[in-house]
Simulated scan of single mutants.
Amino acid sequence: MLGQHRSTQRKTPRGRADDDALTADIIALAGRFGRYGYRRITALLREAGWAVNVKRVERIWRREGLKVPQKQPKKGRLWLGDGSCIRLRPERPNHVWSYDFVESRTHDGRKFRMLNVVDEFTRECLAIRINRKLNSTAVVDVLTDLFILRGVPSYVRSDNGPEFIAKAVRDWIDAVGAKTAFIEPSSPWENGYCESFNSKLRDELLDGEIFHSLAEAHVVIEAWRVHYKTARPHSSLGYRPPAPEAVQWPSNEGGSPPPNAPRVAPKPVMH
Rank of each mutant, 00 (worst) to 15 (best):
G3Y: 15
R16L: 05
A17C: 13
A17V: 04
D18H: 13
T23P: 05
D25L: 13
R32V: 05
Y36I: 11
Y38Q: 06
Y38F: 00
R46Y: 10
A51W: 14
N53R: 00
V54F: 00
K55A: 04
R56K: 03
R59P: 00
R59F: 01
W61F: 01
V68F: 00
K74H: 09
G76Y: 08
R77K: 14
L78Q: 15
W79M: 15
D82I: 12
L88H: 08
N94S: 03
N94C: 02
H95Q: 02
V96M: 05
D100C: 12
S104K: 04
R110V: 06
R113E: 05
V118A: 15
T122P: 12
E124K: 12
R129V: 02
N131F: 00
R132Q: 09
L143I: 07
F147P: 04
P153H: 06
A166S: 05
I173P: 09
A178K: 04
F182V: 06
F182L: 11
C194H: 15
E195Y: 15
D207H: 11
D207G: 09
D207A: 12
H212I: 03
V219T: 13
V219W: 12
W224P: 13
H234F: 08
S235T: 03
L237T: 14
G238I: 03
R240G: 06
P241C: 09
E245H: 10
Q248K: 08
P259D: 03
A261Q: 08
A261H: 06
